[in-house]
Design a protein around this nucleic acid. Structure first.
Lengths: 209, 209
DNA sequence: CTAGTCCTCAGTAAAAATACGGATATAAGG
DNA sequence: CCTTATATCCGTATTTTTACTGAGGACTAG
């Protein structure tokens, strides 16, 4: 059968070149393009027909997961494998939801990468047991912390985290201080914290601020 | 002249294998070992005599900068080039202080990596203009935010970020609430923030908590 | 010996947050 | 049509934080 046409997208050029060097030794694969950004990827997709795209989550100006989703809408027969350093369940879950066919962490080895590419090229998904565990664990948590913050709450949260007082925020948003107080209380309930310090810490760790 | 004997240390196996694949094509270089951890590195150093070590800052259980410093004490003729994703001046400054001969960010390309290896093998340091700018910029900031938090302040900070009140922290540490208050005030001054919310946000972003 | 830092503790007061309770209007989903 | 969520706002009170001021002892570096 013909070689698996593969594109590699990663903003770390050394990593990208290294991966390409590795994969080029394999007779079943053919690297037909490389890029560092979403724009690079879309340009490549428009001019070539890869079977597989290896893509990082981290990308300048956007994130790889959204790129996957957008790309799949226009090129539904292209399959994406996420190749990233993020070993957190929430990323795995999002990757799957956005249509990724595989997920590898950068500490995987060459053999697993090649196996993943071949599996996905054959229409299978590739998530090893470690990745599956992360996914399962995160789905359990997600069921619980389903409550996300509303737009106004996010706005208030950001202003709080910048050191503004409730009164200052009220003045800035042209609302009553009591309104801001209510938003603060609601956020603390949603994220299950006891005071502002804990709220800001949790928000920072959840990358909300 | 003989080939430049190089060791590659990085916990991301794919990256490491990719880099080795790239460098192996170059006739002036010889990869004589690879590892994912500080222990791997010390084992390699004990049994081989590399000219150059490519090393990431991020390492499980320790950090590459301390590893460089320790390794140089035992093997002073080995030269280290940091190869990392961290594009922050504080890392560059620390790398130089710990004796690194070069610093590359993972978005550098193959040619620059090879040039850096050759420069360093010839006894020169390799810091491109981008890296130099980061270093200069950070040294300016460092003069200003030289103040880091003391052990006790860190302890109080962590407890505050867990949602405890000043009184609760005082009870837990067996000190007066006023003592805790003083620590809080001092931390806010050091990090130049206006209240606890801003303090916790800054601490989270600085990866203190 | 001096200066600086760290850690400890205090009085007093104002500002801010939290807590308890309550409410209305609008929009969306089942 | 009912329920839920969001956004808005309120009274009252307590707790907590912040602010201003002050201080001593121990340790370290120059």
């Amino acid at each position: 059968m013909s070689k698996i046409k593969t594109i590699v997208v990663d903003d770390h050029q050394l990593f990208r070149e290294g991966i390409i060097s590795l994969l080029s030794k394999n007779d079943d694969l053919e690297i037909i393009g490389e890029g560092a950004s979403a724009d690079d990827l879309f340009a490549l997709l428009a001019s070539s027909s890869p079977n597989i795209v290896l893509i990082d989550i981290t990308m300048p100006g956007t994130n790889g997961l959204e790129v996957i989703q957008t790309a799949r809408e226009k090129y539904p027969e292209v399959k994406f494998i996420v190749l990233t350093m993020h070993a957190e369940g929430q990323y795995v879950v999002k990757a799957v939801r956005n249509g990724a066919y595989g997920y590898l962490i950068k500490n995987a080895d060459e053999n697993e990468l090649i196996t993943a590419i071949k599996n996905v090229a054959n229409g299978k998904k590739h998530f090893n047991s470690e990745i599956s565990q992360l996914m399962i664990g995160n789905m359990a948590i997600e069921g619980e912390s389903h409550k996300k913050l509303s737009d106004r709450e996010m706005e208030v949260l950001n202003l709080v985290s910048e050191g503004q007082t409730t009164k200052e925020i009220a003045d800035q948003l042209f609302v009553s201080a009591r309104t801001v107080e209510t938003h603060r209380v609601n956020m603390m309930k949603k994220l299950k914290v006891q005071n502002t310090a804990e709220l800001i810490k949790k928000a920072a760790h959840l990358k909300l601020i």
